[in-house]
Design a protein around this nucleic acid. Sequence first.
DNA 1: ATGGGTGCAAAACATTTGCAAAAGT
DNA 2: ACTTTTGCAAATGTTTTGCACCCAT
Lengths: 140, 140
Amino acid sequence: MKELDILQDAHIKVTPQRIAILRLLKENSGHLGVKPLYNLVSQQYPNISLATIYKTLELFRSKGVLRAVAVASGEANCCSSPDFNSRLVCSTCKSTFDIPVPEIDLKEYLEDVSSRSGYRLTSQQLVLYGLCPKCSRQEA
Amino acid sequence: MKELDILQDAHIKVTPQRIAILRLLKENSGHLGVKPLYNLVSQQYPNISLATIYKTLELFRSKGVLRAVAVASGEANCCSSPDFNSRLVCSTCKSTFDIPVPEIDLKEYLEDVSSRSGYRLTSQQLVLYGLCPKCSRQEA
DNA sequence: ATGGGTGCAAAACATTTGCAAAAGT
DNA sequence: ACTTTTGCAAATGTTTTGCACCCAT
C-alpha cells in the first residue's frame, strides 16, 4: 500500500514530510528510533526539525498508522529470574495484569488470556533477546 | 530468595538503599518506572537521589540482577498492519533480525528461530497490548 | 481568507557525570 | 584504613510546547 493511500485512509493531511517519514519507517520495518529517523529524513529535508518528527509520530500513533513499540530501555525494570516475561498492558491506562508463561499453542493461549483477564487484546509483541552470531563469538 | 542473598551472590556491595530498591522491584513484579520507584524508595529514604536510583539500576542490570524491560514508549516505531510484531534484538549491539510470527508450539518455534538466525537466545518477552475491562467499557 | 503544518526557540522533563562527604567491608 | 557508595549539583540529552510564518485548499 502506498504511503499516500495510508495517510488518506487515516484522514491525515498529506505533506511531503509525512510521506517521507512513513516511507522510511516502512523501509526499516519500523525499527527506527527518533534520532536515526530524524537523520534519515534530514537527508531529504535538511531543515526538518525534531519537533516535526515527534509531532508526526504522535499523530500517526493517534490515527493508528503506527504502533509504538519499545525495545528495552531503562523505562521499566524487572527482577531477572523469569527468563520469559509476559505481561498484559492496557494501551489506554497502562495498568498491567500478570499472565502466565505460554506453554501451549499461541492461539489457544491468547484466547485463554483474554477470557481470564477480561482484557480485549489488540496486539501482541514477542521480543526475543539474545546474542547475534558476531557478538556471540566475541563474547566467547 | 532474600534481597541480601541476591546481592551477595551477584557480588554487589550491600547497602540499605540497594536492598530497598530490590525489595520494591520484587514486590511490584518489576513493573516499575524510575519515578514511581523513586517515590516509593523516598518514603523510606527521604534523601535518596534520583542519581542513586539510576546508578543502582544500571549496576543491577550489569550484574544480571535486573533485566531491562520496556513498555511501549516512543522509542521505536512500527508500521501498524502487523498486529503480531516479532523481532530478535541483539542485547549487545542492538542489531535486529526479523522473524516470522509463531504459529506453532513456542518451544519448537524458539528452537527454530535460534537455528535459523544463528542468534543465541537469552530471553524472550511477549507483550500483549489491549484494553482492560474498564477502558474497554469507557471506549464503547 | 482559513485551517492546519512547519520550523525555530524555549521550556519542561529525563538521564548522566563529577565530586566531596559518608558508609561498607 | 581503604574502597565504594551516596547525594548534591551541574551537565547533558530528550521530548514537549508556543508561536510566527508558510502552504494548500
